[in-house]
């Protein structure tokens, strides 16, 4: 894992953390069958925070952020997103999901639709945006991720890095208030990692609330305001990046950092 790649000055003028709560998770537990994946998770995310979640494979990072838009259901405790509790009440789940963007490790673009159609589909069908307007928005975000010229191609014709940037643009088209990233760069070659990270940095600079599962510690150091370390389904340690990297408290964190940073 590289200590990459964020080689420019970060513009911090819009990166402010408000005291409005965006996500509130308390005493949350989840099991797969008898396997206890998440144990007593307590986490409060304020609007404008950029949180990086790290931890060894199988520690439950993906499961945690997938619980936040209910791709997975938790069994006890509570998750409140934007003031709405995620319960068994199905009525509002699509509403929550349309407010929370999610970027996957394997992009999950829709291969039968063009890039532009990928980006306009949800605004048109979920938000009922007129087609013209949705297309204008989509082009705006495609320009932002620097691939407007690919708009009429199909996902299969793009490189991995380009596909991931389309996936980010697709989420942004829904104008989400929170973005979740699940290892967005780990299926990519090194050159492509940079282009995706750049996009994510820009997003952070605009003040988006972000939760990123990633092993890109350079990214964490540059833009995160909090790093969370998970192991065996628990949040073991959390701190601001400088403290987290230079002065880890927990033994498991130290071990993990020494492995990942190659010290």
């Amino acid at each position: 894992m590289s200590e990459l790649a964020i080689d420019r000055e970060i513009d911090r003028s819009h990166m402010s953390v408000s005291d409005e709560v965006a996500i509130q998770i308390s005493k949350m537990n989840k099991w797969y069958g008898t396997f206890h994946v998440l144990r007593d998770i307590d986490l409060t995310v304020y609007r404008g925070e950029r949180i990086v979640i790290a931890g060894p494979s199988g520690s439950g990072k993906s499961t945690l952020i997938r619980c936040i838009n209910r791709l997975e259901e938790h069994q006890s405790g509570s998750i409140v997103v934007d003031g709405t509790e995620l319960g068994s009440d199905l009525k509002n789940i699509d509403k929550i999901r349309s407010e929370v963007g999610m970027v996957f490790q394997h992009f999950n673009l829709f291969p039968h639709l063009t890039i532009l159609e990928n980006c306009t589909l949800a605004p048109i069908w979920v938000r009922k945006t007129p087609k013209k307007e949705a297309e204008a928005t989509a082009m705006h975000f495609l320009e932002k991720v620097k691939i407007p010229e690919q708009a009429h191609k199909y996902p299969g014709q793009l490189s991995g890095g380009q596909q991931q940037r389309v996936a980010i643009a697709r989420s942004l088209c829904m104008k989400p208030r929170i973005m979740l990233f699940d290892e967005p760069t780990s299926a990519l070659d090194p050159e492509m990692i940079k282009e995706v990270l750049d996009t994510m940095v820009e997003l952070a600079e605009e003040g988006m609330t972000m939760l990123c599962v990633t092993h890109e510690m350079g990214f964490a150091q540059a833009v995160a305001n909090r790093v969370i370390f998970m192991d065996a389904g628990q949040i073991v340690e959390q701190n601001e990046p400088k403290e987290f990297f230079n002065n880890p408290q927990n033994e498991r964190t130290k071990l993990f950092l020494s492995q990942i940073l190659g010290h």
């Binding site: 838009n69 791709l71 699509d94 509403k95 929550i96 999901r97 349309s98 407010e99 929370v100 963007g101 999610m102 996957f104 394997h106 999950n108 673009l109 829709f110 291969p111 039968h112 589909l121 949800a122 069908w125 979920v126 697709r170 989420s171 829904m174």
Partner: peptide, 27 residues
């Protein structure tokens, strides 16, 4: 179909019938 297609459709807030009609069934 890969599970990711169902998940991406869900994550965008498409309800069951829309995700079937627009994403899953065409493929």
């Amino acid at each position: 179909l890969p599970k990711g297609q169902y998940e991406a459709a869900d994550a965008l807030g498409l309800d069951y019938w829309k995700s079937m009609r627009l994403i899953i069934l065409p493929q």
